[in-house]
Structures are given as structure tokens and as C-alpha cells.
């Protein structure tokens, strides 16, 4: 495992921890899209079905369990916690699941490398992860006074994607048989989706102003 991959995983983990701390600490999930969180949970479930059949390393198994556990916890808090659920911006979080899930499913069925349940679901998870942030970005545009933690959450998530691309470039040159067009294409698309957000994030940081995305 190279340094980019490890740093990417840590950013990913940190983003989730930041979000969990925000939600449980201030008892508020204002500005957070439940749709994005549920889509990520679906991504993890469909991707990590191989958790007991395909052992890679203790690190991988532990991280998979942590991602499944923490994203389940986030969805649980937002949906069922007596206090936290009252702070969810349900009326603003209007993105349609089907708009992201259906194309991902069709593409997975059309392009899966092998037609086994695990492989098709894994391919589905790659497509879905690429677009799962969209409800969150739309919600951010609609939210006035985005708090720092929400901005940092999306920033950390975007950093994770950027670092994974560096990891792939590194592996491309150091591993002979490392050729994964599907994963790379989706990863690049996913990172491009963040570009606009990054631009305004850095702008607000540079000017020492609160983050606000133009509608």
C-alpha cells in the first residue's frame, strides 16, 4: 500500500468521523443530506459483500467494517434519533434517488466484467459512489450559513477522491498488471463533481469568509 492510498483512506475515515461528531456533538444534522448518506451506505453494502469471502488484509477488513458501522450510525441518527431527526432539512433534500440508482444499475448490468451477483453489485457500487455526493452538493447550494463542519466534511471527502487518483497513477507505474478503466473513469468523474465546491471552499478560506455556494 502506498502513501497516497493510506492518506486517501484516512481522509475518508476522517470525513465520516467529523460528520458523526458534528451530528452527535451538537445534536444537529442541519445541512447534511440523508439521501447522500443512504446512498453511501448502499455503496458500502454492495461493495463489501465479499468481506468474508475475499480476505485481502486485516486492515481492509477492519476498514470495511468501520465504514459499514459508521455510515449505518449516521443514517440511524438522522432517521430515528428523537432530537437529531428534527434538524434534518427534509424539504430541501429533494434529489431523487432513482435518478442516480437506476443509471448505476443499468450501467452495472451492461458493463460488469463477470455476471455474478457479487461482481454486478460491486460494479454498481463503483458507479453509484461516483454520483452519490450530488444530493449533498445540491443541499449545500440551498443552505444558507453552511457551518464549518459541513464544509470540512465535503472537503475531506473530496480530498479522499483526489488522493485515490494519485494512488492509481502511482500504481499504474509501479504495478505491471494494474489496469482498471472502469474504476479510474468513475473516480475521475467523481473528483470532477467536487471541483466547483473546492473552488468556493478555497475562496472562502482565502478571504476568511463563511462558505457559501452560489445557487
Amino acid at each position: 500500500m502506498n502513501v497516497f492510498r493510506l492518506a486517501g483512506d484516512m481522509m475518508h475515515l476522517l470525513s465520516i468521523v467529523v460528520l458523526l461528531l458534528k451530528i452527535t456533538g451538537i445534536k444537529s444534522c442541519r445541512g447534511i443530506s440523508l439521501k447522500t448518506q443512504e446512498l453511501y451506505l448502499l455503496v458500502f453494502i454492495t461493495r463489501y459483500l465479499d468481506i468474508f469471502t475475499n480476505f485481502v488484509s486485516l486492515y481492509n477488513t477492519v476498514m470495511k467494517l468501520v465504514f459499514l458501522g459508521t455510515s449505518s450510525a449516521i443514517v440511524y441518527y438522522m432517521r430515528y434519533d428523537r432530537i437529531i431527526k428534527l434538524t434534518y432539512d427534509k424539504e430541501q433534500d429533494t434529489f431523487k434517488y432513482l435518478l442516480l440508482v437506476a443509471p448505476s444499475a443499468v450501467l452495472a448490468l451492461a458493463t460488469s466484467h463477470v455476471y455474478t451477483v457479487l461482481e454486478v453489485l460491486w460494479t454498481f457500487s463503483i458507479y453509484l459512489e461516483a454520483v452519490a455526493i450530488m444530493p449533498q452538493l445540491v443541499l449545500l447550494q440551498r443552505t444558507q450559513n453552511i457551518d464549518n463542519l459541513t464544509g470540512n466534511y465535503v472537503f475531506l471527502l473530496g480530498s479522499y477522491r483526489g488522493l485515490y487518483i494519485l494512488n492509481w497513477i502511482y500504481r499504474f507505474f509501479t504495478e505491471k498488471h494494474y489496469r482498471q478503466w472502469l474504476v479510474w473513469t468513475c473516480g475521475v468523474v467523481q473528483t470532477i463533481i467536487y471541483c466547483d465546491f473546492f473552488y468556493y471552499y478555497f475562496l472562502s478560506w482565502q478571504n476568511n469568509e463563511k462558505l457559501a455556494l452560489p445557487a
Binding site: V56, S57, H113, W122, N167, H177, R179, L182, V183
Partner: peptide, 10 residues
């Protein structure tokens, strides 16, 4: 392509 290589990533 190699369908299993990326399964070592998260």
C-alpha cells in the same frame, strides 16, 4: 482488464 485487482482497495 483485470477484474479482481481493485478488490484490494476500499
Amino acid at each position: 482488464g483485470s477484474e479482481t485487482a481493485s478488490k484490494d482497495e476500499l
